[in-house]
Each structure stands twice: as C-alpha cells, then as structure tokens.
Amino acid sequence: MDGGSGLNILYANTLELLEIDRSRLRGDVAPFHGIVPGKRTRPLGRIDLLVCFGTPSNYRKEVLTFEVVEFGGAYHAILGRPCYAKFMAVPNYTYLKLKMPGPNGVITIESTYEHAYDCDVECIEYAEALAEAETLIAHLDQLSSEVPDSKRRAGAFEPTETIKLILVDPACPDNRALRISATLDIK
C-alpha cells in the first residue's frame, strides 16, 4: 500500500511469475520519478490486470492499470491512489489494514507488524545496495578516466627533465638519435 504513489507499479519479475508475456504491454508510457530515490525511471510499458480482494463469499474485482518496471523491489507490486480510488478503499497504516466496500459487507485486508518490518528492512537493504552500486560505478568511471593513453606503447620512455638528442651516425639519412639528459655531470 502506498497512498503517496500516483501509480500502480508492477515489477517485471512479478509479470514473469504470473506467466504473462511481455507482448501484452502497451508502450504508451512516460518516465516518472520517486520510485528509485533520485532517479528518473522509464517503465517497460503498461498492462491492465484484473485484481481481486476478499473471500469467495465477499469479494471485489476491478481492472487496474500497472506501470511495469524492469528493476527489482521488495514487493511484487505497489498499489497506489488509482487502486484505492477504483476500489473505494481506505488504508490505515497504523493498524496495517485496507478496508473497502464489498457486496456482502466490508472487506478487510490486513498484515502483521512482523511482515511490515521485514518488508521495510528489505527495502532499506535494497536501497543501500543500489547506492553502493552507484558509488562503485562512479568509482570505476573515475578509474577508467585515469587509464594511460592507449596510443602509448608499454615501456615507452618519457623523460621527466630536459633531454639532448645525439645522432648515432650523423652521415646516415634516417636520423637515429640517442636521448640523454641535458643535465648530466661530466664525471
């Protein structure tokens, strides 16, 4: 449940677990922000799925549109405000309950504090792993910019001080020369 989200999100691996082919995705998608902290995300596509809440004697089902994203998450899906509006559902985060009208009375969906805590821990670990991966990528980019020039041959000599060229054979037209330090002592 995410009452702050303006989207219903479904992860691509959940789509695979449901054995739904990606060819059913519609491509009319726009990028959005906020799912991955500080990152812009472009979904793979949208899909309409039938979602059902309740028990066999008292249930509601509605078609919801989900944005399908490629990255992983701690959940299978995120139900946002569009879901709540469609089901006329009211979330209560304190008691971990979601209530909605059903044909035979109120439908209550509930969770446990232990499950909520485990999900929070998994979300934090995922976010930390993502941040560490970004730091590693930035570090590798920095190291790759410090790689020596690829045109330079291994073992090439580059003097750190001024040098003097001495022709090996002044009579030879190929101008081969030795390089020696211009600051050598006579000793």
Results as ranks from 00 to 15, higher is better:
residue 35 I to H: 02
residue 75 Y to H: 11
residue 147 V to D: 04
residue 128 E to Q: 14
residue 161 E to L: 12
residue 133 A to F: 06
residue 60 R to A: 09
residue 136 L to C: 03
residue 135 T to H: 06
residue 168 V to R: 06
residue 13 N to L: 08
residue 142 Q to M: 13
residue 86 K to P: 02
residue 157 F to N: 04
residue 104 N to A: 03
residue 105 G to K: 07
residue 100 M to Q: 07
residue 6 G to D: 14
residue 85 A to R: 14
residue 183 T to G: 03
residue 61 K to E: 15
residue 154 A to T: 02
residue 129 A to R: 15
residue 1 M to A: 09
residue 156 A to S: 13
residue 138 A to M: 12
residue 7 L to R: 09
residue 8 N to W: 03
residue 51 V to A: 06
residue 117 Y to N: 05
residue 18 L to M: 15
residue 125 E to I: 08
residue 39 K to F: 12
residue 102 G to E: 06
residue 40 R to M: 06
residue 92 N to V: 04
residue 77 A to G: 08
residue 155 G to S: 05
residue 154 A to Y: 07
residue 4 G to Q: 03
residue 150 S to G: 06
residue 132 E to T: 01
residue 99 K to V: 08
residue 175 N to M: 02
residue 70 E to S: 14
residue 65 T to L: 07
residue 150 S to D: 07
residue 56 P to Y: 09
residue 162 T to R: 15
residue 97 K to C: 11
residue 64 L to E: 14
residue 117 Y to H: 11
residue 19 E to Q: 14
residue 22 R to F: 13
residue 167 L to W: 03
residue 109 I to H: 00
residue 128 E to K: 13
residue 171 A to D: 14
residue 69 V to G: 04
residue 153 R to T: 01
residue 85 A to E: 13
residue 136 L to N: 11
residue 169 D to Y: 07
residue 157 F to G: 04
residue 19 E to M: 10
residue 85 A to P: 02
residue 157 F to M: 10
residue 101 P to F: 06
residue 150 S to P: 10
residue 154 A to W: 01
residue 113 Y to F: 10
residue 166 I to Q: 03
residue 109 I to Q: 06
residue 119 C to T: 01
residue 137 I to L: 14
residue 99 K to T: 14
residue 143 L to H: 05
residue 163 I to N: 01
residue 174 D to S: 09
residue 2 D to Q: 06
residue 109 I to V: 15
residue 159 P to G: 10
residue 24 R to K: 12
residue 9 I to R: 00
residue 33 H to Q: 15
residue 97 K to N: 09
residue 38 G to W: 10
residue 104 N to C: 10
residue 144 S to V: 02
residue 163 I to L: 13
residue 28 D to K: 12
residue 5 S to T: 05
residue 55 T to K: 13
residue 40 R to E: 10
residue 157 F to I: 13
residue 28 D to G: 13
residue 91 P to L: 12
residue 28 D to A: 14
residue 81 R to S: 01
residue 44 L to Q: 04
residue 180 I to S: 10
residue 93 Y to Q: 01
residue 22 R to W: 00
residue 92 N to A: 05
residue 7 L to T: 02
residue 56 P to D: 15
residue 137 I to P: 08
residue 68 V to N: 11
residue 133 A to R: 14
residue 173 P to S: 11
residue 48 D to K: 13
residue 73 G to W: 05
residue 105 G to H: 06
residue 153 R to M: 00
residue 127 A to C: 07
residue 155 G to D: 04
residue 185 D to Q: 14
residue 26 R to T: 09
residue 35 I to N: 04
residue 98 L to A: 03
residue 53 F to G: 04
residue 30 A to Y: 08
residue 143 L to K: 13
residue 5 S to G: 10
residue 27 G to T: 12
